[in-house]
Design a protein around this nucleic acid. Sequence first.
DNA 1: AAAACGGGGAG
DNA 2: CTCCCAGTTTT
Length: 349
Amino acid sequence: MNFGCTLIDWYKLNKRDLPWRNTRDPYLIWLSEIILQQTRVAQGVPYYFKFVNAFTNITSFANATEDEVLKLWQGLGYYSRARNMLKTAKVIKNNCGGIFPTAYDDLIKLKGIGPYTASAISSFSVDEKRAVVDGNVYRVIARYMGIDNPTNSNSGIKVFQILANSMMESHVPSLYNQAIMEFGALVCTPKKPKCSHCMLRPNCWALANNKVELLPVKLKKTASKKRFMYFFVVRNGNKLIIKRRKNDDIWAGLYDFPSIESKGLLAIEAIVAHHDFKLWFGNNAIVNKIHKPIKHLLTHQTIYAQFIEVCGAICLNKQPPEWLHVSVNELENYAQPKLIFAFLKKYLT
DNA sequence: AAAACGGGGAG
DNA sequence: CTCCCAGTTTT
């Protein structure tokens, strides 16, 4: 029995019952695929339901505001996915008559849809013959075939795509693609793979050569950077000052507080002496409360954050025009980074 | 070719 | 703590 048949037989018996399976609707497949980019299934499922309920079809999605979409996306990370979804929804509404494309060559032109997602949507919706290559596929092929090209190198990406295409053979693309990914997620896992009861074990190169834990090979990623952020919590009656984050940094389009940033740890004396602090709050501002520092871990940076409540003589005329005064019960309409959301939850109770 | 982009779970 | 997840875009 060959590779593909073995995978598909296993899949039919062992697949998970996931909410985006059993549909050919490219809109629903697109929702699930964007949500699942660099995201575990368990984390993505609730968001899939949120979006399906909020937007029944691509046109209703296209009519949303960016704030609305980001609010639904809050907590999922990689927020450019949400902003790109809205751009793509508008393009489909305005240039494709609201009909979601199913052809790889059309899909690949859309924002947020790369080679993996275009392959997934085109194969799952209309069985276009396109082999998906995601983290699971890299792992299964690297181990089964004994491929040690780095999966995140330019040459490695090419090699794995070619191998993935040829290994699909003449199997039903939707079925084969789902099967190889599900197998990678459930059996050929990154850590502690279930080799002992793997049906591919007779032909697995890595198992025969005792290299299962060493494959796939991945080039080391850049070291995590440290950042020190100081957020000013300014209350004006029942209103708080928030602002929308710029597009040149993390959390683009989400809302946080006026803040300053430093390369290193700052004492409170240095914070109140900071140029921006004096500009915004004047010399008579009172630091009401200094919250305990928080260490917020991201994949590529470690953020040391501190929330500082400020009151007293606020220089209202020196406030940047982009600052918003939002009443406490309206805050829930503004998407916030996890760090800010977690603070507000405690602060407001 | 390399860096940037979040948050969570497993080990 | 490190690794990596149904990757894509930007530099």
